[in-house]
Amino acid sequence: MIDVFDDRRCELGEGPLWHPERGQLFWFDILNKRLMSNENGTPKSWQFDEYVSAAGWVSKTELLIASASMLFLFDLETTASRKLTDLEADNPVTRSNDGRADPQGGFWIGTMGFNAEPGAGSIYRYYKGELRKLFGDITITNAICFSPDGRTAYFADTHRQLLQQIALDEDGWPAGTPALFRDFSEEGLFPDGAVVDSQGFMWNAQWSAGRVARYAPDGGFAGEVCLPASQTTCPAFGGPDMQTLFVTSAALDLSGEPDGKTWSSPTGIRGQAEPRVIL
């Protein structure tokens, strides 16, 4: 069963985050520079001066938010902001895109070109005050997510249709080199945002396919949730029992009624609670 969780149409809905201490879903409309939420049926939004795309939670009232030029701390109650660090602030070509907190409390964030310039994107990790570049030469960074034990990270280049995995050390830093998780090119699929459930299975939204597909830890296909919106962008688990899948979508270049809305679906499978970001 698929329900409309929020019927506001996002030009580019992205970055859903279930805040475990607030019991509340947050997400972004990147191109309209908005953070969005729906609190007990009441739509809420916060407007910013530049593109915002992903967040992690720091406390009950504070989010770490990635924008086109920085990572900043945002207070949901007072709307006060405090810059934590620049993020390719000297590069006018790029903006932030997909991001997620890892189980060790680090925050991974990917960048991409405003016009998806080939190889313009990179992936960084912010951990205990340090921002470190991890990978470069990526066109559209996506699918940043983590195994329940915190020892494996996943990420994709949507443009190249490749989803990779890499081992992590005990502090959450990459150990070794990335390895292929799944090549979607033969299926004609484009991996977008992703999340890993409590069983270690990945749920991957696939741009233009109108679905979120589930994959086993070995990369094997394990099922799908089909949605009315074709441009699905990113999933997140939430709800009181962490068994509801929320999915953002994009109305970009489309005019259909379902496009750009935020969706929900019961799964019967428990997700992982998003870790707190350690500043």
Results as ranks from 00 to 15, higher is better:
202 M>E: 06
276 R>V: 11
271 G>L: 04
106 G>A: 07
232 T>I: 05
98 D>A: 08
171 D>G: 09
103 P>G: 03
90 D>Q: 14
73 L>D: 14
31 L>P: 01
74 F>W: 14
227 L>A: 03
249 S>Q: 11
180 L>T: 13
149 D>R: 03
204 N>V: 04
121 G>K: 06
211 R>D: 05
207 W>S: 07
104 Q>G: 01
114 F>D: 05
272 Q>L: 13
123 I>A: 06
12 L>V: 09
171 D>N: 12
33 K>W: 02
213 A>Q: 06
212 V>G: 01
35 L>T: 01
146 F>L: 01
80 A>P: 14
164 Q>E: 15
4 V>D: 08
249 S>T: 09
17 L>R: 06
154 Y>M: 00
166 I>F: 10
72 F>Y: 14
199 Q>H: 14
48 F>A: 04
219 G>D: 11
159 H>Q: 15
114 F>H: 10
263 W>K: 00
171 D>I: 07
109 I>C: 15
245 L>W: 07
176 G>I: 01
143 A>G: 05
175 A>W: 05
227 L>D: 03
25 L>A: 00
208 S>W: 14
154 Y>D: 03
177 T>I: 13
27 W>E: 02
234 C>H: 11
108 W>I: 06
11 E>L: 15
77 E>H: 14
112 M>Q: 06
229 A>P: 13
275 P>N: 05
19 H>S: 05
233 T>F: 09
166 I>P: 07
215 Y>F: 07
59 S>N: 08
